[in-house]
């Protein structure tokens, strides 16, 4: 199996690697892992008072596709509102990076990570995220 040029580009020059202080209320942290391959991913967003994602950082321990998926995602979410970021689907990431079917789960991991980061930000700031409100209704 060979990686696409886009995956290689993100793998060799990952964007936005690093971390924010996860105690900061402006920061949302999403941590996810894929049992099948043992990959772990941390994705953090910094959100403005207007609810815009100003900055994003990630750290991924995993294969090239997992690193590329999270790297691409940090680029995509910058400048988006939380709601827009919430709408990003793993299929869009897989398509952009031309991931082969066996690597699609890496893009799922990235989608789960941004959702988890948004949830974390929302719960820190008193807002009730979709998931939580559904739970409350149920």
């Amino acid at each position: 199996m060979s990686y696409s040029d886009k995956v290689l580009d993100h793998y060799e020059n990952p964007r936005n690697v690093g971390s924010f202080d996860k105690e900061d209320t402006k920061i949302g942290t999403g941590m996810v892992g894929a049992p099948a391959c043992g990959d772990v991913m941390r994705l953090q967003i910094q959100v403005s008072e207007e609810g815009i994602i100003e900055d994003a950082k990630f750290k991924t321990y995993g294969c090239g596709s997992a690193i590329a998926s999270s790297s691409l995602l940090t680029e995509w979410v910058k400048g988006k509102t939380l709601e827009e970021a919430q709408q990003i689907k793993n299929t869009q990431i897989a398509e952009e990076l031309e991931l082969p079917p066996v690597k699609v789960h890496c893009s799922v991991l990235a989608e789960d990570a941004i959702k988890a980061a948004i949830d974390d930000y929302a719960s820190k700031n008193g807002a009730v995220s979709d998931k939580q409100s559904q739970k409350k209704l149920a």
Partner: peptide, 16 residues
């Protein structure tokens, strides 16, 4: 049944 992603923040933080 194998979850695609694991959602145990404590465990993942430790792994990280």
């Amino acid at each position: 049944p194998q979850a695609k992603t694991i959602n145990d923040p404590q465990f993942l933080l430790q792994q990280m």
